[in-house]
């Protein structure tokens, strides 16, 4: 398999270079860098990379990055989109998802202090999955604590729910929780049953179901 090609966009050259360096060291091929939303859109159309990593806040305006990311999601569904954001606002993430969690990610910029988090998210997205920042998921989960269903979950189950929502694979979740995949599968069946959700074998649809459930106001 050839290298995964990436376009990195940020109006700050230093940030752009830093992100590119981490991704390059992680085995991705940086095919182009962009300094604003329009340039990014043009490059993506021309190069059809596997992944675009973009700053949410980019010219034009202060939300050009998000607009361009949505545009790429609409025009080029095969291109993965990872938005780096300084806003802990689930609404941005939910909007970015649209109707699917395929090849999409919303990561807070503070994750850049750990190269592995960025690389992990980039790999999940290029593999066709999703990467939602734990802090964003946490805000959604905490917002639902009024919900009787959620309060019925055990702490461990809630941890597992958050990891599912973040877009991690079953194996990754099992590793983090220190349990076997079998145990995790049993646990997630229990979680879905308690929330009244249908357990979907498709990972992306499962993630979406959880996120939509969490975002549903009441």
């Amino acid at each position: 398999m050839s290298e995964l090609r990436v376009v990195v966009a940020d109006d700050s050259v230093v940030v752009r270079r830093g992100v590119s360096r981490i991704l390059a060291e992680g085995g991705f091929e940086i095919v182009a860098e962009a300094g604003d939303a329009d340039e990014m859109l043009a490059l993506v159309s021309a190069l059809r990379p596997h992944l675009v990593v973009t700053d949410i806040r980019m010219p034009p305006g202060t939300s050009g990055g998000l607009g361009a990311a949505l545009e790429i999601r609409r025009l080029h569904p095969a291109v993965g989109v990872l938005v780096l954001s300084q806003y802990l606002e689930p609404d941005y993430a939910i909007r970015l998802l649209g109707r699917g969690v395929d090849r999409v990610g919303y990561l807070l910029k503070e994750r850049l202090s750990d190269a592995q988090e960025l690389l992990d998210a980039a790999r999940r997205i290029t593999a066709g999955g999703s990467a939602i920042d734990p802090a964003v998921v946490d805000e959604l989960v905490r917002a639902r604590r009024r919900d009787d269903h959620i309060s019925r979950l055990t702490d461990r189950e809630r941890q597992a729910l958050a990891l599912i929502a973040e877009g991690h694979s079953n194996r990754a979740i099992a590793e983090r929780l220190g349990i076997t995949i079998k145990t995790l599968e049993g646990m997630s069946s229990a979680i879905f049953a308690k929330l009244g959700l249908e357990d979907d074998p498709d990972r992306n649809r499962r993630v979406l179901a959880v996120l939509m459930y969490l975002d549903d106001p009441m």
């Binding site: 700050s12 940030v15 830093g18 850049l112």
Partner: peptide, 20 residues
């Protein structure tokens, strides 16, 4: 956002480099 926070991000990237 454009000033202090951006500088913090740059610092984090530098730190990340130092870590590796």
């Amino acid at each position: 956002h454009d000033g202090a926070q951006q500088r913090l991000v740059v610092a984090m990237l530098a730190l990340q480099e130092a870590r590796s």
